[in-house]
Design a binder for these strands. Structure first.
Lengths: 148, 148
DNA sequence: GTATTTAAGGACAAAATTATCCTTAAATAT
DNA sequence: ATATTTAAGGATAATTTTGTCCTTAAATAC
């Protein structure tokens, strides 16, 4: 569905939301290990998400790292897709037709329509915070390692 | 959602299903023009779909070209994804986690589950034939050109 | 048979994506 | 001030995806 970059962006942001706060920031090394992603590449991605502090916040130096302010935690998950420039996936025609629409529908359009709407709704209604909160019980994970 | 290659594969196969038969085969030039795809690249893709005549049939020489036999028209759309090696997209975790499952769900798993099921159902239940048939009325299209 | 038409197949090129590494800048601690 | 820690940023490399072009093979037409 999404590119690796966007998958890493989603996982990293959720992990940061869960594990950190303005008081307890979190470093790139821990993040990359936790979400099982290539560290340097993930750093680049977080750099993008941190641009203008849109999705993620960061500070440099000792005890520095990444974190989310309250406002950022309340962002819909879709805003991560937008920041990654991969938002159009949710709107796109399954067959890749530029003109596919209600006026000029492709053969999949009618049936795919409701699935698309649900996808959009999911990514708009769920906030970063909510996903992080869901993990609190320890029954929901964001790692590729086998849970004990 | 899908790679360009798979988008072209879907569009080309549907177009062939609609426009051709064992009696009236259809050439790569017409196909590529009709579905608005790069001709040589599309040829390569059809080559793959024609391998072992799995999804598409073809013959060379004058009046040769591509076509579908009845058996092929009845294949589910998903078989095109499978032939393109992109079938896993339907099953994959949205966050790209290898271990995401009912036992070890990611934070999106529960909500994405039903969307995934609908996606799979759509691609399994719809046959190539059905998509081609839907276009018969001239109210459903597979082109990027503006309809008059 | 020879020429023509059309897909098959191989080699290669361009572009995008994924990934690494090194230097720079900012913040803190001493 | 100096050293240390950590993200920011730039350069570059590897891989995958997308795309083109040319030759070969098969089928038909003559």
């Amino acid at each position: 569905m999404f590119s690796k970059a966007t998958e890493y962006a989603l996982r990293a942001t959720i992990y940061i939301a869960k594990k950190s706060s303005a008081e307890k920031k979190i470093g790139i090394e821990e993040i990359a290990k936790a979400i099982d992603s290539p560290q340097s590449f993930t750093a680049k991605i977080l750099q993008a998400l941190t641009k203008e502090n849109k999705i993620v916040s960061s500070v440099r130096g000792p005890n520095g790292g990444f974190f989310l302010i309250e406002k950022q935690k309340k962002l819909p998950v879709r805003s991560i897709l937008q920041a990654m420039g991969e938002d159009e996936i949710l709107e796109k025609c399954v067959l890749g037709l530029k003109r596919c629409s209600e006026v000029q529908p492709c053969p999949m359009h009618e049936q795919y329509k409701s699935i698309k709407q649900q996808l959009i709704k999911l990514f708009v209604s769920k906030t970063i915070q909510q996903l992080a909160d869901d993990m609190k019980d320890g029954e929901i994970f964001i790692s590729n390692k086998k849970q004990p």
